[in-house]
């Protein structure tokens, strides 16, 4: 279970930024700061998949980066299975597996070495690593390219390696930042199957996306962020209800429209 309450994050604005944006100011800019995330809350139970939606620049990536502990929140709490992880990022990193569409691999290491390296950084010992890696290689059908350098792998192979890397330490929660953006259909399918696998194991998954068909396929819950504020959090059915449409795209647009009118 993961619960996020009232997250906040601001960034200092640079001089260039201030001058450039004097005319059309983003409502999130004030006193030299850009309040990227102003109030974001959601929760995801065991065995649930949460889809994080929102227009570009809404604060999704910032939110997920705070979840993954890359950024430190200014306020709010993140609670994983009853443990507050904001105050202890090292502990949080052991509990979270993170994967984004843009994360890379070390090109000069082989796929296997990449995964083993991260396993070692997670403090796993040799025997554990061997067991876990064999399991993952079998699961993701990676045996054919294990000893190839990552720079020579195809996009699909890379994404499989990335997935294995992200979950090698058996995280309690998996966070995915637009994991399917820019991937072909085959590779997208790999990611989707991987999320379904996690769901069956009961691992909560949070992922941000722009593809609502994926949300329909995978998610129990949906959370919408707009301009740094959570404007919807509920089940997929509630999403359709509030959005007053059976098609998810229309429902999403209606919800955004509504928040802007308020």
């Amino acid at each position: 279970m993961i619960e996020v309450v009232a997250l906040k994050k601001k960034f200092k604005l640079t001089k260039d930024h201030k001058i450039k944006n004097e005319e059309h100011k983003d409502p999130r800019e004030s006193d030299g700061y850009f309040h990227s995330v102003r109030d974001v809350s959601f929760r995801c139970e065991r065995g649930e998949v949460l889809g994080l939606l929102g227009p570009n620049g809404a604060g999704k990536t910032t939110t997920l980066r705070m979840l993954s502990t890359a950024l430190q929140p200014d306020a709010g709490s993140i609670n994983i299975n009853g443990v507050d992880v904001v105050s202890d990022p090292l502990l949080a990193r052991k509990k979270i597996g993170f994967l984004s569409g843009s994360t890379g691999l070390y090109g000069r290491l082989t796929a296997k070495e990449n995964i083993e390296y991260f396993a070692r950084l997670h403090g796993m010992d040799k025997r554990e690593i061997k067991l876990r890696c064999d399991e993952l290689f079998e699961l993701l059908d990676m045996h054919s390219f294990l000893n190839k350098r990552a720079e020579h792998l195809s996009t699909g192979m890379k994404q499989k390696t990335n997935i294995a890397r992200a979950v090698v330490h058996q995280p309690e929660v998996v966070v995915l930042d637009e994991p399917t953006t820019g991937l072909d259909i085959m590779t997208t399918q790999t990611v989707i199957e991987f999320i379904q696998g996690l769901k069956q194991q009961g691992t909560p998954v949070i992922f941000s996306t722009h593809h609502l068909d994926e949300v329909d396929l995978l998610c129990e819950r949906v959370s919408v962020i707009d301009k740094g504020i959570s404007c919807f959090d509920g089940s997929l059915n509630e999403f359709r209800e509030v959005g007053q449409s059976d098609t998810l795209n229309q429902a999403f647009l209606n919800i955004l429209q509504e928040t802007q009118n308020v």
């Binding site: 890359a70 090292l90 994360t103 890379g104 090109g107 991260f118 950084l121």
Partner: peptide, 14 residues
């Protein structure tokens, strides 16, 4: 540039 720094930052290594 390769996007590996972010993953590195997410490991439980200070």
């Amino acid at each position: 540039e390769r996007g590996t720094l972010e993953t590195l930052l997410l490991t439980p290594v200070t």
